[in-house]
Structure formats: structure tokens, C-alpha cells
Design a protein around this nucleic acid. Structure first.
Lengths: 327, 327
DNA sequence: ATGGCAGTTCTAATCGTTTAGATGAGAAGA
DNA sequence: TCTTCTCATCTAAACGATTAGAACTGCCAT
């Protein structure tokens, strides 16, 4: 059915070797006249090299596996796109799998990807889950965690500097005159969220302010329910830093439903900086993660012989309406 | 480096054929005692079948290519997840590529996927772009368009019944007492958006109402700008059906910024029904697309010998706050 | 003429699995 | 004892591309 090297060779009156040399500007030269004949034959027949065969022979597939916690989450979706662009620059394809926050699914995906002989593995997981990359590393497949790494974790981690970002957020809210600055974290935070919480706790405590720590699941729904309870109970603080945009959007929805004015009665900043955050009502103030840089770094670590070791730019503060700014 | 069939065969004192038969519950039976030895050897060595080699021999890879317009758009992201689940049920992996609404990128991705010998191709494109699946179909690779199909298009289309959905939306808004029901469409609508617009136009016209048609890009940004202009010019209608959630979210953001109350001064319904729509302020009323059913249907069309020909369930109306309902 | 040397091209082994055909060992039937 | 049959297993040929090593052309210098 499909056109093979042998077909092109027959048509052009040469051998498969010569055709291969022409196709890859191969390791050996080919006479100009022959090259022409081969190219003409390939074009006529509509020859398309079979990457599976090449992969078997070469031991490298040009495909990287991406294990994603949840592509429906705009933060992970944006990260996935950045990774895709970084891979595309290296002419590498991407297999994707959503683990849906479930460790067993993560494991399952890793095994499927290894069987498919991926050249590398990128794991973007939320909190929780074991060292899924370990199996890949043992099998000799380069792997990298992005955003979060389990402990212990056998593969390197690429993540942004959350400390500086949270510092900027806290200082910004204090600049708006707030003294009760709460933090909304995850249920069992770890990784970047824990870093953010730590940074907040340190800053608020050392300023002599009371650190009010809230926790809920990383879903809009959970954050909305929590917010509704706090408002009903009259214990809503005047300023809040949400660990993730998703949670902040849930907070915003519940505040709107309960008639609590943002930013007048509640100043809000969240820490992802997804594209969505610019289109909430009011627009969310955020600390924006340098996703493109993180992705480029991660992919370089996987595929390039000499990965860059420049440090990652920190997340930066993007003030919009929800913190009390006009913009 | 990697453990092969031959290694397992040597270790268990059998041949590669027997090992293969054991691994696949092969086409021939194996004596129980031998089977045990083989399984033990495979476990000890940590054997993992090489799917690339299997693919070369079998001519089938167990991988499907998904060409997506834009995974950052929650509607497409949700659709992609549904497709992934449908594929997973058939033990099939997925390669993903985002075309970013650019026809040349679509074409490029299709070619990469074909070279990777995918077993099938799912194309989820927005308006515009040529018949990218044509090349795949000619190469004998089954393909299917989901959501939108270019004209002419060589592959079948899986799409929901938009007519019934829009009818429900228009009738619902009329039930709230609205008589000026505008429609916000895309810049050069086609496919599902055009269907929605047609349905709206027919219904509104036949009710003797004036059909006000608005157009802008499918981005939140564009919709927000258009809305701001309309509000400033005092020409904002009292009720609006947005073709997509993204546009509706842009409308909502601009209305909030300009202080235009939703739903009191503007009743809004949009036509995708993404998860996001429940968490806007106020919550968006939508007609919800049956994404899981669409995905299952599309994948069945690609991979199953006898695809189902039951008709697709229609999108259904989910009334929330933005249309004027209390819920 | 003849050996050597580029410059080309061909032959065939290889990657790891699958599987049809050949082979072998035993059991049952003549 | 000698077929005949059934099971279980082995041998080896694919799948399509890559690439060393062999082989074949001219051409020049001896």
C-alpha cells in the first residue's frame, strides 16, 4: 500500500542505499544526476519516509511523552503549549496523557510511553503521586519534572522562583494598606504551592501580622464553597493570596454570588498567571510564571547535549483590578 | 541496553516465538510449565515489549494523531480530554499538536503524524483552513473531523445538533421577556458557528423580531473590545447569544468593567458549555455540547470495524445566572 | 598495459517482533 | 512395529530504513 524506499529505488533504477543517501543528504555523496532521478521518482510516487522503521533502526523515535496532571486546568494547558513549542523547535513530536491527578494513571501512562520508546519524558504533576519518573530513568530514558517534583525524585526539576513572586504580592497588598493578608493553599500542599505558602508565612510573620492560613482542594468549586462559608460566617479577611488561579476564580465566583465587592471588600492576588486571569470580573491580579522559559529549560535538559544552566527568571507581579489597582 | 525478546528466550531456554506467544496469548498455545518459565524470566529481566518493533511488523502503531486548533481554549481542551478517554478505552495512545488556528501549521502537523505512521487522525479545527485530512485519507489513514469540517472535506464530520440547542436558547430568552435578541458570531463563520447563527436568524426572523448580528474574533479580547464599544455607543441589545464561551467571557469582562449589570441590563447565553462557564461572575447560561458522546463517536469511526450510526444527542440548555434565571 | 585511486553505487546485515512452515516427541490406532 | 495425529516448539522470513563493506567504473601515472 504505502510507498517504500525500495519502490523509489526500483523506479529510479538505483538501490535503497542511494535513495536513503539522497533523502538524508546521507553519510555518502551521490552523483548530481542520480540525485535528480531519485528526487523525481520520490515525488512522483509520493514517497513519505516511515519513521517507525527509522526509529527501530536508529533506536530513537523523535517523540517525547508528556504526562500532564490535567489539561483542563488552564495553568497546565498553558504549560503544555509552551512545552509543545519548545519541542517543535527541535523537530520532536509529543505524546500526551492526562493523569487526572491520579497516581495510578500517572504510572500507567509512563509505562505506555516507555513501551512506545519515547526519547524523553516530561512529568507535570500536581501535589501527590510517587516518583513516576524513576522507572523511566532506570530504563535509561531521560526525564524531567516540571512545576512539581515528588520527594524523593530521581529526575531533575524545573520550576520558577516562587519566593520572589510571593514577596512582591505581599508587599503590593501591604502597599494597598492591608494588614490581614490570608493565604489560600491546597489540602496537602507540597512543591511550588508549599514554597509559596512558606514565603507568605515568613513575610507576614516577620512583619508582625497574623498569618491566616486557609486550605481547600485545587478546584474552582472547592474554593467557591469555602469562600461562601467564610462570607456567611463573617470571617472573610480583607486580603487574600490564592495559591492558584483556579482557586482564585472560585473565590471570585462565590464573592460575586454573595455580593461581596472585589477589590473594595476583598483584595485578591493569585499565583499562576494563566491567560484566563485577565478575563475574570474583576480582572485578577497575579504573579505570572515564566512558562516559556520553564518549558525551554526542561526540553533542553531532555534533548540537548549541553543543557543551559542559567537560572530561571522569577515569576513577576502583574497587578490588575482584583488587588485594588485601577489598571 | 534494553531487554529484548531474545534475552527472555535465552534466559528461559526457549525461542523468541514461544516468548512472543506467551506475551500476546499468541496465535498458538504454550505448555503451562513453559509459560511459567517465560513469565518468570520476563519479570526477572524487566522485559518491556518494544512497540516500535511491533508496529513495524504489524503495520499498526496504536497511536492516533490529534490536530487541535488551540488547547488553551477550554472548549477544545475539554474536547481533547474526551477524545483521550475514548482512545484510552481502546488502549490507544495519542499524539497531540496545536495548530494555533494556522492552516500551515495544521498541514505541517498532519504530515508529521503521517510520517509517524499514526493509525488514525482526528482534526479539531476552528473556522478556516483547507481539507487537511485529504492527504491522510489518500494515504489510507482513516480520519475524522470533529466540531468543524472544511468544505470540501474528504473525511466524515462528527458534530452535535446545534439547531435544537439554539432553538432552546432563543425560546428561553423570549420566555424572560426579551424581544431584541442579538447574536455574536465569528468573523467569517462556518461550520457549527454558522449553523448556530442560521438557527438563530431563522427563529428570530420568523418571530417577527429584528435580527441584530454582531461579529468579532473568537477571542475573549476581541469580544471585550466589541462590547466596550457597543456600551459606549449605547447600542448594546438587551439579550445576546454568543457563539462561543470564550466570546461570552469577554463580553462579561467588558460589561463588568463598564458597570453594565448582567443579567439585569444584558441577558447572555453562550453555546459551548465549557467547565469554565459555571465559574464566571455571574455564572454563564449555556447550551452544553455532548463532548463525551462526540468523542466516542469520532473514535469509533476511526478505530472500530463497525462504527455506531445512532444519532448524536443534541446540545442541551443549562440555565444559570447570566440569562436572568436565579439558579 | 597495469596498478592505484577517486568517485559512485550495490549488497546485505541490522534493529525487535510476529508468525507461517518445518520439526520433533509422544500417544493412539492398525 | 509402523503409520497417523496431536501438541509443543523451533527456524527463519518478513516489516522499512540505515549504513558498513564490497564492487564496479573511469582516469591517471607508471
Amino acid at each position: 500500500m504505502a510507498v517504500t524506499l525500495a519502490d523509489v529505488a526500483r523506479r529510479s533504477g538505483t538501490s535503497t542505499a542511494v535513495v536513503s543517501y539522497v533523502m538524508n543528504n546521507g553519510p555518502r555523496p551521490v552523483a548530481p544526476a542520480t540525485r535528480e532521478r531519485v528526487l523525481a521518482a520520490a515525488a512522483e510516487l509520493g514517497y513519505r519516509p516511515n519513521r517507525i522503521a527509522r526509529a527501530l533502526r536508529a533506536g530513537t523515535t523523535g517523540v517525547v511523552g508528556l504526562v500532564l496532571a490535567d489539561a483542563s486546568n488552564p495553568y497546565f494547558a498553558a504549560l503544555a503549549r509552551s512545552i509543545e513549542r519548545a519541542l517543535d523547535r527541535r523537530d520532536t513530536l509529543m505524546m500526551t496523557g492526562n493523569a487526572g491527578y491520579r497516581p495510578d494513571r500517572q504510572q500507567h501512562l509512563v509505562e505506555r510511553f516507555l513501551a512506545a520508546q519515547v526519547d524523553g519524558l516530561v512529568v507535570v504533576s500536581a501535589d501527590g503521586g510517587g516518583d513516576v519518573a524513576a522507572e523511566a530513568v532506570e530504563a535509561g530514558v531521560r526525564s524531567v519534572y516540571v512545576h512539581h517534583r515528588p520527594v524523593p525524585g530521581k529526575a531533575p526539576l524545573v520550576s520558577a522562583d516562587n519566593d520572589a513572586a510571593v514577596r512582591a504580592a505581599v508587599e503590593h497588598l501591604r502597599g494597598h494598606g492591608h494588614r490581614r493578608i490570608a493565604f489560600l493553599s491546597g489540602p496537602h500542599d507540597a512543591g511550588p504551592v508549599a514554597e509559596r505558602r512558606d514565603a507568605w508565612h515568613r513575610l507576614v510573620s516577620s512583619a508582625g501580622l497574623e498569618p491566616l492560613l486557609l486550605r481547600c482542594d485545587y478546584s474552582r468549586d472547592a474554593a467557591a464553597r469555602l469562600t461562601a462559608e467564610l462570607i456567611a460566617g463573617g470571617t472573610m479577611p480583607g486580603a487574600l493570596i490564592a495559591a492558584t488561579d483556579e482557586q482564585a476564580i472560585g473565590v471570585l465566583a462565590a464573592a460575586s454570588a454573595a455580593g461581596l465587592a472585589v477589590p473594595a471588600r476583598l483584595a485578591l492576588i493569585s499565583c499562576d498567571g494563566t491567560p484566563d486571569s485577565a478575563y475574570t470580573a474583576p480582572a485578577l491580579s497575579v504573579t505570572e510564571q515564566p512558562l516559556d522559559d520553564m518549558a525551554e529549560r526542561a526540553v533542553a535538559l531532555l534533548l540537548d547535549r549541553e543543557p543551559p544552566n542559567a537560572s530561571l527568571p522569577a515569576a513577576r507581579l502583574v497587578p490588575r483590578r482584583s488587588c485594588g489597582c485601577d489598571a
